[in-house]
Nucleic acid binder design. Structure first.
Length: 376
RNA sequence: GGGGGUGCUCCGGAGAUGGCGAGCCGGGCCAGACUGUAAAUCUGGUGCUUCACUGCUGAGUAGGUUCGAAUCCUACCACCCCCA
């Protein structure tokens, strides 16, 4: 994997760059649709490429390990071979499930024992094991096994958790660097900065990780319920320490506004379930603001879902029709809404990139933030 | 034409046999939540009035009995079943 920094905004830390992987290029800043179980819910890969213009998608180690399982993935030639997506893939390590499945797991020095949410069976994830699983999945970018701490989180716990995450990181690196990719193309490992909302811990973690000199670095443990100001403050603190010549990935963020503000603070890569999950729940992100398509006010509004959105279905179909599909619980409603939200997210980061390259990012961002957060 | 049964909330169901029924369950509808996906999920509201307490109205329709009626009586209306 190679990263080229093309331009940095004069009035902020916003950067335009290019990541090159064995499965193709990624223009940054980028939003990566989440495809936990090997599918970006409700969209076909044809649409993901043509209408949404996705350049990289996510998968999840924990979910793919449980189903379809490693044997199937190995036989398929990895996740690319299994699901037919031939552009870059990034896999999360299961660190987020340490947080989201907190009531069905136990953390020890060695690793984390999960009880499967599917059948209750017990599975132990160690840093070494998670590296091995991600070798089998074969993602281009794989993530270190960490603990994503909850919010709020007291200082003592955050500190102990951070030290554990750092020890796990060293074990991840040792395993990763001593093993080979399985499918003939290289993989790269991103470490993850933790430290909850404590500046002291974030600085310590960022310095620790910057010194490792990996190909890219991630910021985790944010967007777990803390105020947006804390998220921005921690992001700004960390991007001030992480190397400028490596991509920075802010995990799990966020709303369109969060993304614009964090691009301004020097983040290159984002992922979030909001555009896909909210789409299935009837919440649309559009170039004119946020729409709850189930609301009665759209009952007879025959204007396009989003006339300026790159997704053809959003220009072709009306709000009234999409509302009708949702009220009838029709699958097509979720498909069209997901196309809209992902196409909008990708449009947003591509537009940001153009503004950075043109040197006009900050003014554009300040105006756009007001629009994308507005409820219609 | 004769006999029997049933009628209340937007809909369906349960329950209600003279006294806490503006009230249960489900659906629908109206809103809200969702941030490295246990999520096509979850939460709230859904007679009128008040910020709230409260108050008011309502049981197919119209009367009646009673301290008190969705409940009993009379007539009528609608629907269902049986007989002709």
């Amino acid at each position: 994997m190679k990263f080229s920094l093309l331009h940095t905004d004069p009035a902020s830390r916003a950067r335009a760059g290019l990541i090159e992987t064995a499965h193709g290029p990624i223009e940054t800043p980028i939003f990566m649709p989440v495809g936990t179980a090997g599918t970006v819910k409700a969209v076909h890969f044809t649409e993901l490429e043509a209408d949404i213009r996705a350049q990289i998608i996510l998968g999840n180690t924990y979910h793919l390990y449980l189903r379809p399982g490693l044997d199937v993935l190995r036989q398929a030639g990895g996740l690319h071979g299994f699901n037919g997506w031939h552009k870059p893939i990034l896999t999360d390590s299961g660190g987020y499930q340490v947080y989201s499945l907190a009531h069905r797991r136990k953390i020890k020095e060695e690793g984390v024992t999960f009880q499967s949410h599917i059948d209750g069976s017990r599975h132990t994830f160690t840093p070494e094991g998670v590296m091995d699983i991600q070798r089998v999945i074969g993602a281009d970018i794989i993530m270190a096994f960490d603990e994503c701490t909850p919010y709020p989180c007291d200082f003592d716990y955050a500190q102990k958790s951070l030290d554990l995450t750092h020890r796990w990181l060293q074990r991840c690196i040792a395993r990763f660097d001593s093993t080979e990719p399985l499918y003939g193309y290289p993989q790269t490992l991103f470490p993850i900065v933790q430290g909850s909302t404590y500046p002291e811990l974030r600085v310590k973690s960022a310095e620790f990780i910057a010194a490792l000199g990996r190909d890219g670095n991630a910021i985790g443990g944010l967007s777990v319920g803390e105020p947006a100001e804390d998220m921005y403050a921690m992001t700004e603190l960390v991007t001030g320490i992480l190397p400028t010549d490596k991509p920075r990935y802010l995990m799990g963020v966020g709303t369109p506004e969060n993304i614009l503000e964090c691009i301004a603070r020097g983040v290159d890569m984002f992922d979030c379930v909001l555009p896909t999950r909210n789409a299935r729940h009837g919440l649309l992100y559009t170039t004119e603001g946020i729409i709850n398509i189930r609301n009665q006010k759209w009952q007879s509004d025959f204007s396009p879902i989003d006339a300026a959105c790159p997704a053809p279905t959003s220009r072709k179909h009306s709000k009234a029709y999409l509302r009708h599909l949702f009220l009838n619980n029709e699958i097509l409603g979720m498909q069209i809404a997901t196309l809209q939200n992902l196409a909008f997210y990708l449009w947003l980061v591509q537009e940001a990139r153009q503004q950075i390259l043109a040197g006009t990012f900050t003014d554009w961002k300040n105006g756009m933030v007001k629009i994308v957060g507005k409820k219609c």
